[in-house]
Amino acid sequence: MKELDVRIETPEQRPRSNPLARVFDELVRFCRSRSMFMLHYCTGCGAIELPPAMTSRFDMERLGIQPMVTPRQADILLITGYVSIKTLKRVILTYEQMSAPKYVIGICSCTVNGGMYWQSYATAKRLDQYLPVDLYIAGCMPRPEAVITGMRELMAKIRDGRADSWQDYYRRYDWYLGNQQHLFGDDWQTPTDVIGEAEHYRLTGPETLGEHTALLQQHQKPLEPLKLQL
């Protein structure tokens, strides 16, 4: 297995003809940072620290952070604890269904290195091998203050344009898929057509395709959208 490459690639610089493009990008980035809808995948004990962060004591909404229900609506995927292998499948499915830009936050030590489940055969140790994690909030469990500080850090990253690890998932899909296949077996497939999406939005990189995606395409059930037929 390859080591995690922490270098974040700069986004492809497309020529922008609009003179206001920079201002516009700036505005969108600012709004993104001030409006974060989170989907909390409460896998473990860290979930218990989220209600105080959201309700009257700490009130995340004043930062523009709101809970949302489905992956389609959300910007942030909060993984709040250990991820068993069975859970990880669902986490990946959920992550792929979110629309980009999307950010993953690993809360608690378990998402960093497996924590107290380090010796478990059924637990994924490092979340960032399977999903591009933007931010870890370590602790067992981190208090709401820590969660909010982490959120603020993410906001700063988004505003500066540094929070683009979601692009990494498209650009190095082969590597992520390889790790997933290593864990779930060769017939692993999610319902989302990640490669098609990467091509559609021109997010492909040199490592989007590779041996693992070739393996996927061998057994993949087709996922083309139903075309309108006259």
Partner: peptide, 19 residues
Amino acid sequence: GNRSKAVHQLDNYAGGHFL
């Protein structure tokens, strides 16, 4: 907004279930 991409009907929210 960016142009949308059509997805397969099985790429759908089911509470994490694989359809």
